[in-house]
Amino acid sequence: MTETNPGPAPDIKTAQLKEQPTAVVRETVPMNALRDFFGRAFGAVTGAVQAQHVQLAGPPFALYRGMPTDVVDVEAGFPLAAPFTNAGGEATTVIAGTLPAGQAYEALHMGSYESLQHTYGAIMERMREDGVSPGEAMWEYYLSDPGAEPDPSKWQTLVVWPVA
């Protein structure tokens, strides 16, 4: 599997999502600064959630609003077992959010983050085939920790793209 040969096409499934409370940090970030943003955001959210004694309900995620260009409107954080109360006064402001309910397409991406566009392209093609339009926001659950698994070919990212 390489950038030019991304491997087998992802298995794309439809899902009916339930609304999920989250705690996030939202910013407009240059694409080449996402790694630093994620480290800062995930750390800030973890601290704020622990301070409120709210349990995490899933892996870290990033929600993207609109199609990314050289900058992206992104929020990064965690799904929660209970609603979060906005925490102010921090250098990185953690806010309450939600992952929306509705119909979506999901695909498990195996490999580096740099090859995620192949999975997004496959989902978009499937949406076209099914006669539906992609929503304005999509998100990725990061199922692998690059700090614990240094081999990018083993990284797993669940891509979720709601229907408009």
Rank of each mutant, 00 (worst) to 15 (best):
residue 66 G to K: 03
residue 86 N to T: 11
residue 10 P to E: 04
residue 66 G to L: 01
residue 134 P to A: 15
residue 88 G to F: 02
residue 10 P to V: 05
residue 7 G to C: 08
residue 52 Q to G: 00
residue 132 V to G: 07
residue 164 A to Y: 11
residue 57 A to P: 11
residue 119 T to L: 00
residue 2 T to R: 07
residue 153 S to R: 09
residue 157 T to L: 00
residue 118 H to Q: 05
residue 138 M to Q: 13
residue 114 E to Y: 10
residue 84 F to M: 02
residue 36 D to P: 06
residue 158 L to D: 07
residue 129 E to N: 12
residue 141 Y to N: 14
residue 41 A to P: 02
residue 5 N to M: 04
residue 161 W to L: 07
residue 135 G to E: 10
residue 151 D to M: 10
residue 74 V to K: 03
residue 63 L to D: 14
residue 22 T to F: 06
residue 9 A to M: 08
residue 124 M to R: 15
residue 128 R to M: 08
residue 7 G to E: 06
residue 157 T to P: 02
residue 135 G to Y: 09
residue 24 V to G: 01
residue 18 K to G: 13
residue 112 S to M: 02
residue 76 A to M: 04
residue 120 Y to C: 02
residue 22 T to G: 06
residue 33 A to H: 13
residue 147 G to D: 13
residue 156 Q to T: 07
residue 141 Y to L: 05
residue 63 L to E: 10
residue 163 V to L: 02
residue 88 G to C: 00
residue 67 M to I: 13
residue 3 E to C: 06
residue 99 L to P: 07
residue 70 D to R: 12
residue 18 K to C: 07
residue 152 P to Y: 03
residue 145 D to V: 10
residue 153 S to V: 01
residue 72 V to R: 05
residue 92 T to D: 07
residue 93 T to V: 15
residue 53 H to N: 15
residue 40 R to H: 09
residue 141 Y to M: 11
residue 50 Q to T: 09
residue 147 G to K: 06
residue 48 A to E: 01
residue 37 F to Q: 06
residue 58 G to M: 01
residue 2 T to S: 15
residue 119 T to Q: 02
residue 6 P to D: 04
residue 62 A to C: 12
residue 161 W to T: 10
residue 23 A to S: 01
residue 152 P to A: 10
residue 101 A to N: 08
residue 67 M to E: 15
residue 156 Q to H: 14
residue 87 A to V: 08
residue 148 A to K: 13
residue 138 M to F: 15
residue 4 T to E: 15
residue 162 P to D: 15
residue 15 A to Q: 15
residue 44 A to Q: 01
residue 106 E to C: 12
residue 43 G to S: 10
residue 9 A to T: 13
residue 150 P to A: 15
residue 104 A to N: 13
residue 164 A to L: 06
residue 101 A to Q: 14
residue 24 V to A: 09
residue 109 H to Y: 04
residue 53 H to M: 14
residue 53 H to Q: 14
residue 95 I to Q: 10
residue 23 A to E: 02
residue 36 D to C: 02
residue 86 N to G: 02
residue 36 D to Q: 14
residue 56 L to G: 10
residue 90 E to C: 03
residue 78 F to Q: 03
residue 163 V to P: 10
residue 152 P to V: 07
residue 42 F to S: 00
residue 112 S to I: 01
residue 42 F to G: 00
residue 106 E to N: 14
residue 71 V to Y: 12
residue 63 L to I: 15
residue 84 F to S: 00
residue 61 F to H: 08
residue 161 W to V: 13
residue 11 D to G: 03
residue 107 A to H: 04
residue 23 A to R: 04
residue 130 D to A: 03
residue 154 K to P: 02
residue 130 D to V: 00
residue 100 P to D: 09
residue 52 Q to N: 05
residue 147 G to C: 06
residue 39 G to Y: 04
